[in-house]
């Protein structure tokens, strides 16, 4: 009985939708963004518009990413308990203790972890850090975009950052954090697969269907 599984609707539509918009836009932003920083394709004729298109696609993908983040932030307030922003702040003593168990489990020295219908405590903290990085990418992107624009809207969207750090420092971090996102993505996919296999929770499928399968024992 204890090992029978309950079907839990964990990820609602906005969560899954923004997950995949994030995936596609980050992929696009990384390729075009890397090109903008280090143009690896060179034009064979002056009639081409390679950098022009790369920048255009980068900016369009950036707007898609921004909208996705706005929807996700809204859903962290409006959505179900698994989407809530509360998952991102695991700083109560009880949750910190749970996080220590998560870490031990991932380091293969702890007990079998509980199968979570939502995020683990460590996962929640990771998404807090990722959200801060995403917001920095958005603001620093708009800050760089603002320098050839005029109007208060660009200052509000990112130009204010230029009072905090120089344009080149900002450019460096905008570039470096791309690799941090790559590292996150690798760990993210690995842990999802790892948990899927270990907990048999259907985690990999859940980001498509929204459903996870949790045992009665873990659910209680």
């Amino acid at each position: 009985m204890a090992n029978e599984r309950i079907r839990v609707y964990a990820w609602e539509v906005p969560v899954r939708l923004t997950h995949w918009i994030n995936f596609l836009s980050i992929l696009t932003l990384s390729v075009t963004g890397y090109y903008i920083g280090d143009p690896f394709i060179h034009a064979t004729s002056g009639r081409q518009y390679i950098m022009g298109w790369m920048r255009f696609i980068h900016f369009v993908a950036a707007y898609a990413f921004l909208m996705s983040i706005i929807i996700r932030l809204y859903w962290s307030v409006a959505g179900n308990t698994y989407a809530s922003f509360r998952n991102w702040f695991p700083f109560s003593p009880k949750r910190l203790q749970a996080m220590r168990n998560d870490i031990k489990c991932y380091l293969l020295i702890g007990d079998k972890s509980k199968c979570h219908p939502g995020h683990t405590q460590l996962g929640g903290l990771t998404y807090l850090i990722m959200m801060i990085i995403f917001l920095f990418m958005i603001f620093s992107g708009f800050a760089m975009y603002s320098v050839s624009k005029s109007g208060a809207i660009w200052t509000i969207l990112g130009g204010w950052l230029l009072n905090v750090m120089s344009l080149q420092t900002l450019r460096l971090w905008h570039h470096l954090l791309m690799y941090v996102i790559f590292s996150f993505a690798m760990v993210h996919v690995y842990i999802s697969t790892f948990s899927d296999v270990k907990e048999k929770s259907g985690m990999m499928g859940s980001i498509f269907t929204g459903y996870k399968y949790v045992t009665h024992r873990d659910w209680d």
């Binding site: 293969l108 460096l172 470096l176 791309m178 790559f182 590292s183 760990v187 690995y190």
Partner: peptide, 21 residues
Amino acid sequence: TADKVGVGLAAATAAGLVLHG
């Protein structure tokens, strides 16, 4: 350069995951 550091970070992550596996 930023790219050397970045590629190093990504490689270290990948290596960590392989070791973990």
